[in-house]
């Protein structure tokens, strides 16, 4: 069991499965296909991200360094949160980037989303966690790999 302490961006608690991307997550490319097809879950569709491609990320703890890609990224996060097909939490190893931060705030303010976000967990966090691990997130930003 390993524990990491990050900074709370959007507060909440969670226990469930981790999905891990070691590279930056291209938000539009990852979420676009499932969201446009109005699916009940997001199957990650970015072919350039072998860590995530084809995985179901809805309701999971998405562990990533930052998000990358189109400046629509914030709107895409807001959209999947509005559709309630978002990852339950975004766990950033680095300082959250401005596009993801926009998305989390837009989701919270305009969609009353309960999406959780924690950043600054450190590179060791991403080195330690694997897709499929059980993970717990506490309200104070503590993340435990169970």
């Amino acid at each position: 069991m390993k524990t990491f302490k990050g900074r709370v961006i959007a507060r909440g608690s969670f226990e469930g499965e981790a999905v891990v991307s070691h590279g930056g997550v291209n938000t539009l490319a990852t979420f676009q296909k499932s969201a446009m097809a109005n699916k009940s879950a997001v199957i990650a569709s970015d072919q350039n991200n072998p860590d995530l491609f084809g995985k179901n990320i809805t309701g999971k703890a998405l562990c990533l360094p930052i998000t990358i890609g189109s400046t629509t990224g914030g709107l895409v996060i807001q959209t999947v949160c509005a559709m309630k097909i978002n990852p339950a939490c975004f766990l950033f190893s680095e300082h959250i980037d401005s596009l993801a931060a926009s998305g989390i705030v837009l989701a919270r303010v305009w969609e009353n989303s309960d999406v959780i976000a924690v950043d600054c967990l450190g590179s060791e966090f991403l080195d330690s966690v694997s897709s499929g691990d059980r993970i717990r997130v506490d309200e104070d930003g503590t993340v435990t790999i169970l």
């Binding site: 676009q32 969201a35 446009m36 400046t71 629509t72 709107l75 895409v76 807001q78 959209t79 509005a82 837009l106 305009w110 969609e111």
Partner: peptide, 16 residues
């Protein structure tokens, strides 16, 4: 503004 396209996916954008 960067968002110039009416991509149907972004329903919350249009609502906002």
């Amino acid at each position: 503004l960067v968002t110039s396209f009416g991509i149907g996916l972004l329903k919350p954008l249009f609502r906002t």
